[in-house]
Each structure stands twice: as structure tokens, then as C-alpha cells.
């Protein structure tokens, strides 16, 4: 009995040793890297995008990288606790928008953490109306609000889903001062809740996404579920980089109809508001700067090689690599612009 036991143990130990990662890396990153993300879903865009990047990093540096969907508040907590570089975070604009909107659990990421490189854009943030809606485009909506019609917009409060709504309200305020009260938020949860409010007639416009709602725009008008896009918040240049097939039956050309300047929502009276949901790294403030450099350098190699771009585009992400320093000033500027908008309609 004892003999058998020892044998089992030996075999087991051998397996364990074999399973240990090869410590071949020459940079400061070695062993197992944990990537926490600000989303709890393993089916969503943050997880998908992070997996693509994590896999590429693992291969390039020669370490194990594991993505954990722990959600925003837990991810920030772990990140501020672990400074040895064994944990990094990938998240998107929600990380500072949550703070701008005053959501509990969000800090000023530019002070509390180190902002790392950007890797991709999800260009799909959209606004949709029922196919039978009297509003043909976003301009109709702004005009209607200016004339005193109440427009109910279904959004998820406190972040990425609200920023387009805030911009719309701000645009109405700029063009028809006082009329911005007519743009009303219907606060709800995920995409299915937003769709449901539209089906129920409890919302006139919903925050939608190209990926999740494109098929709904192809339904016949008499279908209760049929929708129509009126606005994509992405920059024109962003959509222009997408594959020409676009998404489903909606080509890149079709999508360009819904972005600036064709769908114009003014930011300050002169230029149009745009919002691209960008994914980027976040690090602990006290993490070794050599790791920041190593990840920057490794990502540069990966993006120079060019294979990751194909993977990203096939999943309807727009490749968007910016090394840490560039990403920091870029995102800080982006944050400042949105702060003005949010403050002006408060």
C-alpha cells in the first residue's frame, strides 16, 4: 500500500514539474502573469480583446498569461494591492468615465495607477431607434428635442453607454439652450434590457452596438423587433480601418453613413463629438518601470509582425497600438474633453 502510494506521488510530482512554465524570458516579467479585466463577463468584448492580446504577449515573451474576468471594483482592488508586476489590468474608457460620472468604486486612474499602452478599439458603440420611428437620423432627434418633444434614451448609467447620451444632450443644449431637458435618460442594464425597453415602447432611442444589433436592422419594418441605426459614436478614421465587409450585411460604406460628418452631434459648436471605446493596460503605480517598458516593447514587436491586426479585425476590433507615454497623454486629453461635456449638462 505504502509502496503504491510513493509511486503515485513520484509520478504526480514529475507531472507537476513538467507543467511548470519554462523560465526562458530575459526581461523582468517571468513565470505567470495574471491579467484582470474590468468586466465580469467572459463572453464580452473586454474579455475577447484581452484574450487576443494576452495570447500574443505570452507567446512573444515566453510566459504564461491568464485573463481573469473579476470585474471593475475587484480588478482595481487587486491592482492597487499587488505591485510586484504579477498582476496587470486591461480595461477601457469606462475606467475614467466611471470616475467622471461619480460612480462608487472608481478612482482617478491617472493618479492612482499607471496608464499603459492602448491595444484596440471596439468601434461598435451606436444609437438605434425602432424601424418605424419618425426620426430618420440623429439630426431629426436633435431638432425634435429643440422643438420640445421628449426623447427617452435607454442607457446603462455611469460610463461608456452614457457618454454618447451626454454628448447628445450637450449638443441640444448648444443649439437650443434650455431644450436639453427634453433628452431624458431611461436607466437600465445590459443590451437585452435596452432592446426590451425599445420593444415595449418605453424608450424612443437606445444605446446599441453594431455587433449585437446589426441583425435587428435587417428585420422587416412590421416586426416589433426591427431597428435602425441613427448614430455611431466612432471617429470616421476608425470605421475606415474596418474590413470592407463591415458586420453582417452592413458594409463599411453603410456604417460610414452613421458617423461624423454624416451624423453630426456637435461637441462645442465647431467640431463633432466622437467616442471610440479604447482598450488599454493599467498598472500598479509602484510597479517596476522595466516591466512597463518590456510590455511596450513586446507589444511593438507583436504589432510590427502584423498577425494580431488580422485577428482583431476578424472579431470587429480596430487595431490601435500606442505605447505607454503616448497613450497616457492621449487618454488624459480625451478624459478632459469628456469632463467638459459632462460638467456642462450637470
Amino acid at each position: 500500500m505504502l509502496n503504491k502510494l510513493t509511486k503515485t506521488l513520484c509520478v504526480a510530482t514529475a507531472c507537476a514539474v513538467a507543467a511548470m512554465p519554462v523560465l526562458a524570458a530575459d526581461g523582468p516579467l517571468r513565470g505567470n502573469l495574471r491579467v484582470v479585466i474590468g468586466s465580469k463577463s467572459t463572453g464580452g468584448d473586454t474579455y475577447q480583446n484581452s484574450s487576443i492580446v494576452a495570447e500574443a504577449l505570452a507567446e512573444n515573451i515566453g510566459i504564461n498569461v491568464k485573463v481573469d474576468a473579476v470585474g471593475a471594483s475587484e480588478a482595481f482592488k487587486v491592482l492597487s494591492r499587488v505591485s510586484n508586476g504579477s498582476v496587470v489590468m486591461i480595461f477601457h474608457d469606462q475606467s475614467y468615465l466611471g470616475w467622471l460620472y461619480g460612480v462608487k468604486g472608481y478612482d482617478n486612474i491617472f493618479e492612482e495607477y499607471t496608464v499603459g499602452p492602448t491595444v484596440a478599439i471596439n468601434p461598435g458603440n451606436a444609437y438605434a431607434v425602432p424601424k418605424s420611428s419618425p426620426y430618420q437620423n440623429i439630426e431629426d432627434i436633435i431638432q425634435a428635442a429643440g422643438k420640445g418633444e421628449k426623447i427617452r434614451v435607454a442607457i446603462q448609467p455611469g460610463g461608456v453607454s452614457e457618454i454618447g447620451f451626454s454628448a447628445l444632450k450637450n449638443a441640444v443644449k448648444l443649439r437650443f439652450p434650455g431644450a436639453e431637458e427634453n433628452i431624458v435618460a431611461v436607466n437600465t442594464g445590459g443590451q437585452s434590457d435596452k432592446n426590451q425597453l425599445l420593444f415595449d415602447g418605453q424608450a424612443d432611442v437606445i444605446n446599441a452596438s453594431v455587433q449585437a444589433n446589426e441583425q435587428y436592422t435587417r428585420l422587416p419594418e412590421d416586426d416589433q423587433k426591427a431597428m435602425r441605426f441613427v448614430w455611431l459614436t466612432a471617429r470616421k478614421e476608425t470605421i475606415e480601418q474596418a474590413n470592407p465587409e463591415g458586420m453582417g450585411e452592413t458594409s463599411r460604406e453603410d456604417l460610414l453613413e452613421f458617423v461624423t460628418p454624416n451624423a453630426s452631434v456637435t461637441q462645442d459648436g465647431t467640431k463633432d463629438f466622437t467616442f471610440d471605446k479604447e482598450f488599454f493596460f493599467l498598472y500598479n503605480k509602484d510597479m517596476d518601470p522595466a516591466i512597463v517598458e518590456q510590455i511596450d516593447a513586446s507589444l511593438k514587436e507583436i504589432f510590427d509582425a502584423g498577425a494580431i491586426q488580422e485577428t482583431q479585425k476578424n472579431s470587429f476590433f480596430i487595431p490601435n497600438f500606442m505605447p505607454s507615454a503616448e497613450a497616457q497623454s492621449y487618454l488624459m486629453d480625451k478624459r478632459d474633453q469628456y469632463e467638459v461635456i459632462i460638467e456642462s449638462i450637470r
Binding site: 506521488l9 504526480a12 507531472c15 507537476a16 507543467a19 504564461n64 491568464k66
Partner: peptide
């Protein structure tokens, strides 16, 4: 000895 090892090996090593 065996039970935690099995759990660790299967979950942490095989399924990450």
C-alpha cells in the same frame, strides 16, 4: 496529500 494535489493539478495546471 493526494486530494489537494489532484485538485491543484487538474484545475490550476490543466484548466488554468
Amino acid at each position: 496529500i493526494i486530494a489537494p494535489f489532484m485538485a491543484w493539478y487538474v484545475l490550476a495546471q490543466l484548466f488554468f
